[in-house]
Amino acid sequence: MTRPATARWSLLLFVLPALAIYVMFAVAPLVSSVVMSFFNADRTLGSVFVGFENYIYLFTEPVVSARFWNALVNNIKYFAIHVLVEVPIGLLMAALLTSGALRRSEGVYRTILFIPATLSVVIVGFIWRLIINPLWGVVGFPLLGNQMTALPTISLMGVWQYVGIPMIFLYSALLAVPNDLVEASRLDGASPWRTFWDIKFPLIVPQFGLIVILTFIWTFNGFDLVFALNGSAPGPNYSTDILGTYFYRTFFGSSGQVADLDLGATVATVIFTIMLLVTALYFWLVQRRLRAHTV
């Protein structure tokens, strides 16, 4: 074992470069934005400390708060569709890839199925807009123009793009399942279906949980796809507005709306707090239990 003094010094030397860049260019700017949420910019007085006034405004002003709750609910749906569609399909792909039925083609499938994840949203938005366009595309129904279907449609575009990510996480987890267990189950006469659910899946539950919570973080940080398709006041009737676009519109304004930096910082702090609470709760309640269960 290294001596404590050496350990402390080495720790500092090794961690410092990463920590310095991370703190300087990510943590510090974010903290100063959070601080901003407790101030109000005033044309004559400069910034004035206002305590929780911005937060009170956010949750009591009728239009502002109604749009916030709308965006939060939409974001929950956006997350739910990803979890209910993207993760299961990713799992199915991973299960097929590791089913033992493939030989050389395994690598080819794996690479191809991941390709959409490497595309930028500019392309993804453009492709799908064209494909589902009622005039030139394959779908006659105005999917993006209907309040009921617009959000699920955009979510499914996101699923199309990112399904490779849960696939690859779960795939690599399945690869690590010891072969002798699988073989034993097979010799017992279990079907591949039973083998998967009885032997393999229980072993990858922690990774499955991890990809669910990462999907939560990614969808609650979501912005690009909605913005690329529907701009910063995503319609129809804000039915595709999620927290990311709500924040953007508040912080930077839109062509018809004046920007409000302090309120924007407030919105972002609230979003971050929600994510932190849910993630912490998850790790505290679920992930810990899952690990304890499987170890």
Binding site: P29, L30, S32, F223, G244, F251, A268, F272
Partner: peptide
């Protein structure tokens, strides 16, 4: 999970 865009101005 940090939304780094929030820190744009700083």
């Amino acid at each position: 999970m940090l939304p780094i865009r929030l820190g744009t101005i700083p």
